[in-house]
Design a protein around this nucleic acid. Structure first.
Length: 891
DNA sequence: ACCTATCTGATGGCTG
DNA sequence: CAGCCATCAGAT
């Protein structure tokens, strides 16, 4: 088939015994060509006993066989024949334990791997349809299509609406749609799903309706169907700045978060009525449809995710359709091709049943943040938990670098090499696991990852050489990013039992070499008298040194420490590189993987007043917490980072929000919780052969929504409101049923306050104003149920619950850890601290009496109330200090 | 059908 | 029935 070699293809699919290849000719016309579909498996001839080889070659199931170096390439007559030979226990190949290679690769992948063709950039179009709203979602194939819109990336729109509520009318509408689609190759829709598998919405509906109305000759396989929703999710999860883009994946919510565009004023659950009403109503529905479609285009304009995905597909030789989003497919595309070029083949992927126990392996090192330990703080005389001037270094692309440096790969792994002691010539050994790899020939994995990193740099350099913002600059940027995405995902695929590259000992050697490097680096930093206060996977956080010290240290690690240590493991190359990434001016941990900090510099560039803080793991970043919780946490976070030390200032913010939660009307968006269904709804609840597990609130709500005919498939985010958490299981309602009633005590005690309490009790561990513990702001639920609930106050539930009992204000046991030195308490009078510099004057006085005890300043306000100000100053109490403070003392 | 580590909250059994 | 504990699910 010389005519199709070396060209570019848009799509391909198996049709009987042939592959149909889709391309476009010079004038842009779509062309179809056919090549034979091959069901291939490889053997190593050395593995095949001669008798078995003879039998194989004579078998009627074999279409063709040829030698390729040490390999035997066998083309089977059918998929079933190949499956039996490679996977069935009764087959002589499996019975004799002869390994097979790539015996699961489908004909399209095989052809793409073997031919030097490239992936063409498809013509992209966005699609959205409106359907009959009277039909429940569970019968989506029975919904009549009322309108459709296509939008091009450039903004050009085509729209059509049903002319008559008849099958003939719908046939015309769909015929028009397919005629327009002929100009495009890749169709993008939000929750479009899969046209064949009945998943999602738009794609299966138009295919099912086309079948139903009849008379339209079209093969949907000629198009690439790409679901924008999972694509956005996958690309955005790591990139999202806050939880706003994770809360709901409805098009309207994402559009709001990304392009800042609100809903069109139209009730989507009444499309039928709008169509039937004709006139202005119908026009509104049409406008709504057009606008929704255009939102897809605008989301892509902002994010560039589809463009990046197209580039990833080009790099990995995949067609840009929904299935190609899976990293296993991406790595398969890249590595099968690379193996072919280098005369190497990979094991047949065995389909294990779900119940099989998969091999687990150890992961990365995560240190408990030292600052959370009260004794540690006491030793360092820290009154607050806020760290200052913390230097952070991290390894550049740690896992890819390790894979290259240790030449890791299933085929370079050496069985039976010594786990400790001297390392034999020609081997290198991963520390901790003791797994050895040959250094004589580069592994495919190492080569692949090195190639990806090299190409990333090529395009990164190219980008730097181009005028920013030009199409070429964007293209180079996307390519550089695509190579990075691939390089980073390869370790994960190696650790996945569903991948043909799965090897737990290789994956574990990757993670444990990381652990070893981190510990090595940490030990060296501590030898210099600095303290490593936190480390996670590929980064270390250090205090006690200057910027110059730390920069020099990182340099020394790269030029001295690592080259030496790596050589000692027998490696012949070294790609390990540490970088001084940033320093935090202020940094607050609440737990491992949870912190917020403000930079003093980032890669040497000094931070400015508007530099955004770095937030990791906190509720602020999560999509499942209520908005009120996020807002309070955000405010308090900013205050902490701004250096606010007057606890009374925090109290004001807390009490204001608490009063709002307990006493004022609350909006749905402030309190709604959102959780995803991680599996199909049917799989919740008691499962045969498994212990019964309690049903989560979101599952109970999802079942109600299902009853109402809504789409609640796997991955759907369910929004709900808790109406009574004082009973078990707690009472919940779908968000759409919210009428202003909710359990306010639950909202404060569980949803809102704990997230902020954790911040404050880590920042100011000795407690809130007046020395009470921060926990005293919580526990607002009265001991007994409000008499208003259920009885006389019918219909109000907890909505108008009683105000917070006075007993719950600022009481509780102080939480000063016993190990901390007792602070010296100095009472000051507000009037004597006249701004602007009153407090500074007091601090200046304190600074003249350096010592070992922390000071708490109690400020007596004009109203008689007392506020507590913590200081970072420590003093030696003395009569002289007493005298110096006298002018500021309270009467 | 990409890994592990970690944290948080819901739930239900057990205990005093 | 509050508090402790183990277990599970979900999120990062």
């Amino acid at each position: 088939m010389g005519s199709v070699y070396g060209t570019s293809f848009l799509n391909a699919f198996v049709d009987g015994s042939q592959i149909v290849l889709v391309a476009r000719d010079g004038s842009g016309r779509r062309t179809l060509s056919r090549v034979p579909a091959e069901w291939v498996s490889y053997f190593r001839t050395a593995d095949l006993p001669s008798e078995l080889q003879r039998d194989l070659l004579r078998s009627s199931h074999v279409l063709a066989a040829r030698r390729e170096g040490p390999w035997l390439r066998v083309s089977w007559r059918s998929r079933e024949a190949r499956e039996w030979i490679c996977q069935d226990r009764a087959s002589p190949v499996v019975a004799q334990g002869v390994p097979t290679y790539e015996g699961d690769v489908d004909p399209v992948r095989r052809w793409l791997t073997d031919s030097p063709c490239t992936i063409a950039r498809p013509r992209l179009v966005y699609l959205d349809i409106e359907t009959d709203s009277r039909v429940p979602f569970s019968r989506k194939e029975e919904m009549r299509v009322l309108a459709w819109t296509l939008v091009e990336p450039g903004g050009k729109k085509v729209h059509a609406v049903l002319r008559a509520d008849t099958d003939a009318g719908e046939r015309d509408l769909l015929r028009q749609l397919w005629a327009e689609l002929a100009a495009y190759d890749c169709v993008v829709a939000w929750n479009g799903g899969d046209p064949i598998k009945r998943e999602g919405f738009d794609f299966p509906v138009i295919v099912a309706r086309t079948d139903y109305v009849g008379g339209i000759t079209v093969d949907p396989r000629e198009w690439l169907w790409l679901d924008h929703l999972p694509l956005f999710k996958r690309m955005n999860m790591h990139a999202a700045e806050s939880g706003a883009e994770k809360r709901s994946f409805k098009l309207q919510s994402i559009a709001m978060a990304v392009v800042g565009e609100g809903k069109d004023d139209f009730d989507a659950s009444r499309t039928w009525e709008a169509w039937e009403a004709d006139g202005a109503e119908r026009l509104r529905m049409q406008r709504y449809n057009i606008k929704d479609t255009d939102l897809l285009r605008r989301i892509e304009e902002k994010t560039g995710y589809i463009g990046l995905f197209f580039t990833i597909c080009e790099v990995c030789k995949l067609f840009p359709q929904t299935q190609s989003l899976h990293p296993t497919r991406q790595m398969d595309g890249f590595l099968l091709r690379l193996g072919q070029e280098r005369g190497h083949h990979f094991p047949t992927r065995i389909f294990r049943d779900g119940s099989a126990v998969t091999e687990q392996f150890e992961g990365a090192l995560v240190m408990e943040p030292k600052v959370l330990d009260a004794e540690w703080r006491a030793r360092r005389q820290m009154v607050t938990g806020i760290l200052r001037e913390v230097h952070v270094a991290d390894f550049a692309s740690l896992y890819p670098s390790i894979m290259i440096t240790m030449n890791m790969g299933a085929e370079t792994k050496v069985a039976g090499a010594p786990v400790q002691g001297p390392i034999p010539e020609g081997l290198c050994r991963a520390p901790i696991t003791g797994v050895s790899f040959s250094t004589r020939e580069q592994s495919i994995l190492a080569f692949a990852v090195e190639e990806l990193i090299r190409l990333r740099k090529v395009w990164g350099d190219k980008k730097a050489s181009l005028p920013p913002g030009t199409p070429e600059w964007y293209d180079a940027d996307r390519r550089s990013m695509a190579y990075k995405v691939c390089a980073n995902s390869f370790y994960g695929v190696t650790g996945s039992p569903f991948s043909r590259y799965f090897d737990a000992s290789v994956a574990e050697s990757v993670t444990q070499t990381g652990v070893w490097l981190l510990k090595l680096t940490s030990a060296e930093a501590e030898k210099r008298g600095w303290e490593v206060i936190y480390a996670d996977t590929d980064s270390i956080f250090t205090v006690g040194c200057t910027r110059e010290d730390f920069a020099k240290f990182v340099e020394w690690c790269n030029t001295d420490l690592y080259p030496r240590a790596i050589r000692e493991q027998g490696c012949t190359v070294n790609k390990i590189k540490l970088a001084y990434e940033k320093a935090f001016d202020r940094l607050l941990f609440t737990a491992g993987k949870r912190y917020v900090g403000r930079y003093s510099h980032y890669k040497g560039k000094a931070a400015t007043a508007d530099s955004k803080p770095e937030i990791k793991g906190l509720e602020y970043k999560r999509g499942d917490v209520s908005l009120l919780a996020v807002q309070l946490q955000e405010r308090v976070m900013k205050m902490i980072l701004d250096g606010e030390e007057r606890l009374a200032a925090y109290e004001a913010v807390i009490l204001r929000d608490r009063a709002h939660v307990l006493e004022e009307p609350l909006t749905l968006e402030e309190i709604v919780k959102s959780q995803a269904l991680s599996k199909p709804l049917k799989e919740y609840g008691p499962q045969p052969g498994k212990d019964p597990t309690p049903e989560g609130a979101h599952v109970r709500v999802a079942k109600v929504l299902l009853e109402r005919g809504q789409d609640v498939g796997e991955g759907t985010r369910v929004e709900f409101v808790v109406t009574d958490a004082s009973v078990s299981p707690m009472h919940v309602i779908p968000a759409e049923d919210f009428d202003g009633t909710c359990d306010r005590y639950y909202v404060w005690d569980t949803l809102v306050w704990p997230a902020t309490e954790r911040l404050l009790s880590c920042a100011f561990p000795s407690g809130g104003p007046g020395g009470g513990g921060w926990e005293s702001y919580g526990r607002v639920r009265p001991q007994r149920k409000s008499p208003l609930r259920g009885g006389a106050g019918e219909g109000q539930g907890a909505l108008w619950g009683p105000p917070v009992p006075a007993a719950n204000r600022l009481t509780g046991t102080p939480t000063v850890p016993a190990a901390l030195p007792k602070p010296l308490v100095v009472e000051l009078h507000e009037a004597r601290l006249a701004p602007p510099s009153g407090l500074e004057k007091v601090k200046a006085v304190l600074a003249r009496f350096p010592g070992t005890r922390p000071v708490h300043l109690r400020l007596v306000l004009a109203t008689g109330a007392v506020a507590l100000l913590t200081t970072s100053v420590r003093v030696q109490p003395s009569p002289a200090l007493d005298a110096a403070l006298a002018p500021f003392r309270a009467a």
